[in-house]
């Protein structure tokens, strides 16, 4: 009875008794969720255009951040370093299209997936060879002061950096939505996502689309790299942030930009609530696997994810 009370009653009583703290947990989860969405977006973009799960997305985040901070360390001003890094990510996209994607065109998506595993290890090693393995401090000038937000006679403590990250993430998502829906190349990209063969038949260049998508994905990786790299320093483990995007993808679906956003928010908020209110009951450190449990529960009801395309196959 005591156990049932601890698991099913006490956490909710706690939330009700301390609503401001609960709001702070939710707010922090929301802000973290946007950061997860940023990483998940990169996966979604590439999957939409090529039906390939890009295993290298995490390491692209690392590579972009390493390049940026490496340039900064050599005295390049931040704005110029960001510009050059964007250029590097576009060049990388072009190289990937030419060396990896073009020879594998029309191959099974699983082959492409395997190729991205190879790309992961190449970029990992190449990045470390180029920029070294030491932890690097990344500072792009975003303030990191703690902010006291008044609420119900008390206050929530939020980090200014997290608010900036959320804002930049929101702008990024809006920009991508406009790009996909309002530009010719965005529409072409959606056509390729729907049917490669049909898109090619009407004159859409698959190669151009792939370069564009991998470039955009590289830019998203750079933004994610800046945000996460500023929090933890730029180092190898930055690539592991991709693991945090997986439950977001399971939840939101691999083909949906809104899914990546909403999925990120649900996972971010869900894991924080889970860790704070239920974690202590089982020894803590549950947020990593709790996110997957949450995603799997959703999967039971919607196998294609929250916003993923419904899978219909004729037999």
């Amino acid at each position: 009875m005591e156990i049932l009370n601890a698991f099913f009653v006490s956490p909710f009583v706690d939330m009700a008794e301390y609503p401001v703290f609960f709001a702070e947990v939710v707010a922090n989860g929301f802000l973290t969720g946007i950061m997860y969405s940023l990483v998940a977006l990169g996966f979604v973009l590439i999957f939409k255009a090529s039906e390939t799960f890009n295993f290298a997305q995490g390491v692209m985040v690392l590579f972009a951040a390493l390049t940026l901070v490496g340039l900064q360390e050599r005295g390049v001003p931040t704005w110029l370093a960001i510009g050059i890094t964007v250029g590097v990510m576009v060049l990388l996209a072009m190289a990937i299209e030419k060396v990896m994607l073009r020879p594998l065109v029309n191959q099974d998506p699983f082959i492409l997936f395997m190729a991205t595993i190879g790309l992961t290890f190449f970029l990992e090693g190449f990045g470390e060879t180029l920029w070294g393995s030491n932890v690097k401090r990344l500072d792009v000038g975003i303030p990191e002061r703690p902010l006291e937000v008044p609420l119900g006679g008390d206050f929530m403590l939020l980090n200014e950096f997290d608010l900036w990250a959320a804002g930049i993430g929101a702008v990024m998502v809006l920009g991508l939505a406009l790009f996909f829906h309002r530009t010719t190349i965005g529409r072409a990209l959606r056509a390729v996502a729907d049917d490669h063969q049909a898109a090619m038949a009407v004159g859409i260049s698959l190669r151009t689309i792939w370069v564009v998508v991998w470039s955009v994905s590289g830019v998203v990786a750079l933004v994610a790299g800046i945000m996460w790299g500023a929090k933890s320093g730029v180092q190898f483990s930055l690539s592991l942030i991709a693991l945090k995007a997986l439950p977001v993808l399971i939840l939101g679906g691999l083909t949906s930009v809104p899914g990546a956003i909403v999925g990120g928010l649900i996972i971010g908020i869900g894991e924080k609530i889970g860790e704070v209110y239920w974690g202590p009951l089982v020894g803590g450190a549950i947020e990593n696997w709790f996110a997957y449990v949450l995603a799997l529960i959703f999967l039971l009801f919607r196998p294609q994810g929250l916003f993923g395309e419904r899978i219909i196959e004729r037999v």
Binding site: G29, V276, A285, E287
Partner: peptide, 20 residues
Amino acid sequence: ILAVDHPGQEQKATWLQIRR
């Protein structure tokens, strides 16, 4: 006692508990 899972890139929940 507050545990942080490997690699520890995201610890917001732990530090919310500490703040409380």
